[in-house]
């Protein structure tokens, strides 16, 4: 078995731990009346109020290109009439995600050190290759943004939010207590988003008539397809081995 396997033992979170106390607690809660009328819709109303609040601003803005030469000009003219900020925001998101993705693979490599039983997937070489591919994707996006006259060090709003979204995944992967299946589950969430992220970006560049870009991104999408397939397989392998069954993943 792998390190920190899922085990039977004491877990005190459920009410069955203390039948007497939990009965008393249920009786107590039932006998008390709420101090205010209504239901969860009151909660939702407050959210709506803040969403519509005067002075409410977006998470952030998209900066325009820093130079208007060459490709930047081309982009400007090609997508006139459309809203180039959507593309810029998404390029920034992909860039941030890929950078974080390579750090996620590093956390996985550290986790694998000594925790993987012999013969169990993933193999180190494959993980290192995926990590390096994420770095290359980052580089591709950086160069794309530079060619378009964009500043690749900008944190766009979607880049920022992808950091918020991924924070939990990193927490799972970097926690010394988590086992390999738990980490692979987090990685699977990341790769699902990674794959769809590239697919959306390619569709967007296509629709904006930027076929040069979509061709360059096609290779990254093929890598991501491979990542997703592999992570699903690793996850299924490990669940199978731990549960003593054989799962087939799509």
């Amino acid at each position: 078995m792998a390190k920190n396997p899922t085990q039977m033992g004491t877990n005190r979170t459920g009410i069955a731990t203390s039948p007497i106390d939990s009965k008393a607690m249920i009786d107590s809660a039932k006998s008390a009346a709420p101090t205010s009328q209504g239901d969860e819709s009151n909660f939702a109303n407050l959210r709506t109020e803040y969403i519509n609040r005067a002075g409410q601003k977006p998470v952030g803005a998209i900066p325009p290109p820093t130079s208007l030469k060459g490709a930047a000009q081309a982009v400007g003219t090609l997508i006139t009439g459309k809203r180039p900020q959507v593309l810029i925001d998404m390029l920034g998101e992909r860039l941030a995600f890929e950078r974080m993705g390579s750090r996620i693979y590093e956390a996985l490599l550290a986790k694998m050190n000594g925790t993987l039983p012999p013969g169990r997937s993933p193999n180190r070489q494959e993980v290192e290759e995926f990590r390096d591919q994420e770095v290359r994707h980052f580089q591709l996006l950086k160069q794309t943004m530079e060619n378009m006259g964009l500043d690749p060090t900008v944190e766009t709003p979607s880049a920022d939010l992808s950091g918020v979204e991924s924070a939990g995944l990193l927490q799972v992967l970097s926690d010394p207590r988590t086992n390999i299946e738990q980490c692979l589950h987090a990685l699977l969430v990341a790769e699902l988003a990674d794959y769809d992220g590239w697919e959306t970006l390619i569709q967007l560049t296509d629709a904006l008539g930027q076929t040069g870009l979509s061709n360059a991104f096609g290779e990254a999408l093929r890598d991501e397809e491979n990542h997703l397939r592999a992570v699903r397989r690793w996850y299924a392998d490990n669940i199978s081995a731990e549960a003593g069954v054989q799962l087939q993943m799509p």
Partner: peptide
């Protein structure tokens, strides 16, 4: 930088 892949200068 090394944990989250983020640029401190943001």
């Amino acid at each position: 930088d090394r944990l989250e892949g983020k640029d401190p200068n943001n």
